[in-house]
Design a protein around this nucleic acid. Structure first.
Lengths: 211, 211, 211, 211
DNA sequence: CATGAATGAGCCTTCATTCAT
DNA sequence: GATGAATGAAGGCTCATTCAT
């Protein structure tokens, strides 16, 4: 007689994540998950209303918190500092859930109804967050005028890729994406990118001084 | 007329690509593919030795040509020009095969044996190509000294994302990634990124002049 | 009521046996079996781990009990009586499972790994049983000295053939192998064979008297 | 362009036999056979009218010659000698085709239409051959009066088993059934069986003398 | 809450065979 | 005579899910 005290539900979630990571959602069977979690397969239907429900649960809870992490009420500071802070949050959040991040970023490239919904809510908002910061920066002449969409695309690529494709980072570049060490250096790199590429020349020295 | 003149094999390939794109490899069944191709399901095994073989065929042929596209024998010019040319080739090649590109970029984030093999050959070489260009640029003082691995990661993100996740580009940014129009502007954007971020300040005006 | 009370597993077993009998193992499909058992095809994998597992189950359980039937702890009596008793047990056991016996005897003539295992355990033991009896009989001068291996081969032929090939018995000799009537006469025949062929002359009358 | 000069048909036959032996008829695929024979699978249909036709061809040609071997026009001698000669022929014929013999003996235990036909012609005749000899022997008082059917069953078991189940002979008794050596000893054993079991006592010494 | 029997649909693959060449 | 592309049917098995317990 098992109660949820031993975290049956949690065990399913963890097993699912680690398998989705490696094999993808479609490539992973419920049996697969439940064997690893040492749990009865019927429970997935019971808890999440089926395999699809499990995916939905994982995706939305990931993005829900992701947005919370990158949205800031306090927008007083410089656009540059705000952007850096946002990227930092995005990276740290993903680091803390790097296992979910990976398969979510992958799964979201498919053409499912779920994906379209997720995209039209969360990714829309994500874009908005960056847009506001960049707009503000350009208005205040902190940032050079450049096509905002392209910048956001570039940002999303930079923020996303290390968690979508950690093997690449690991095996080709011999860096470990979800280690503190990597994150720190990566943020540093992104900061110089912001300063040298986004920011107006004169602002650069100032901002460096202010950091 | 029972001959390959009507391109049975080709029909399978095309159907597979378009379905893999939308549903992923695991999410697509052979029946699925062959219905769309209006062809007998046994042919997949006949031609490719199974579903896995079909994936392998698509992946390797994609990467094989991808590498051919980005490798240049003529490395006389400036590192900056070489880099731009390389990115242009990478983008145009992917544009020409944007349907394959998408699912290949997605599928390569899994942990399969096939993926490991592909990564350790093709992505290793891709890195090498960029590495040589960046190294040369830094040696010749065209480029600022910066951590090469991070630059390559950034580059790969920029070059890859529009084809891995075209919906995002399309629905969130209202741009169409595999249209001439997009590519042109995107290359332009990448060029200013190279000039303003990678290149030494003084070199910038010169290089702009020389282009 | 979805329980095993209605003997789902048993129904599968019975259907399998009767079909293996007629069509052989390879010639029988799981769908075939389950249609006849009025049961879902997935159950074969569920209960036996696949078609092969079903065969293995039937074979080993047949031989397991076969050996129990022909092994006797009480070996006090004459070798002749012991041999007759052993043959009687072998025949009666097979009669009680004549449907399994037939396809097991047939299937065991193939070159499978399963067959090799079965042979090296059960048939080895069967030989041993006969060997001990015959050896004892020869040592006690009940039996004439003759090549034991040949005798065992002959015995196995006699004990096996009516159940391996009942049609032959039925259609060519118009006898029905798994009827009490047949068995009784067959045992009688075997007894005279033992007495007249195996036993020393003088022992014959005695043993006939003692029976 | 291959002609039958290189024995395409023969290659198919040989490959089929050796595979039927090991895997049984149903367990062997045409592809299987033709790969081993290095021949195009379509040829089996072309030559034999399908897989079933191939089996039929092998079975009937085996039995056709088997009957020729055991039927003797010259029935002048003693029944004992005739029986021995018949058994010798049966054994030597099977030895010369031991590979076919094995799977034919196995396949004939199934319940196919082909099998029923074969049985009702060839095995009927085989029985007849033995019946005539035994009848003659009993009429001439060479043989003791005993149920003829049982004797024939016993004979068929003895003559058949070493070729139906050579592994058993080999692995359990460490004898090699299709070697000259085995056959010679086996015939010797059968002879003593005939003399001591079938023949009338007094006849025995005579017949030993006459041999 | 948790289980395991049971299901029906679907999976990928192999089958024997045909037919144009 | 021989090939290889192509087929439709069937192969064994796994799938996600349901339901009585």
């Amino acid at each position: 007689m098992k109660s949820d005290k031993d975290g049956t539900k949690q065990k399913v979630i963890e097993a699912a994540i680690s398998l989705f990571n490696v094999q993808g959602y479609s490539g992973t069977s419920i049996r697969n998950i439940c064997e690893r979690a040492d749990v009865n397969p019927a429970l997935v239907s019971y808890y999440f209303g089926g395999k699809k429900g499990l995916l939905e649960y994982l995706m939305t809870s990931f993005f829900e918190n992701y947005l919370k992490a990158i949205e800031h009420e306090n927008t007083n500071g410089s656009a540059r500092d705000l952007l850096i802070e946002t990227l930092r949050q995005a990276l740290y959040y993903q680091q803390s859930k790097h296992d979910i991040a990976r398969f979510v970023h992958r799964e979201i490239t498919l053409d499912t109804m779920l994906v379209r919904e997720v995209m039209s809510t969360y990714l829309m908002k994500e874009k908005h967050v960056y847009y506001e910061i960049l707009k503000k920066g350009m208005d205040r002449l902190e940032f050079k005028k450049q096509p905002i969409d392209f910048i956001i695309i570039q940002i999303r690529g930079m923020v996303t890729l290390p968690f979508l494709h950690p093997q690449y980072i690991r095996e080709v570049h011999h860096l470990i994406p979800h280690e503190e060490y990597f994150i720190l250096h990566y943020i540093e790199y992104l900061t110089t990118w912001i300063d040298q590429y986004l920011c107006e020349r004169q602002t650069k020295e100032e901002s460096l001084a202010s950091s």
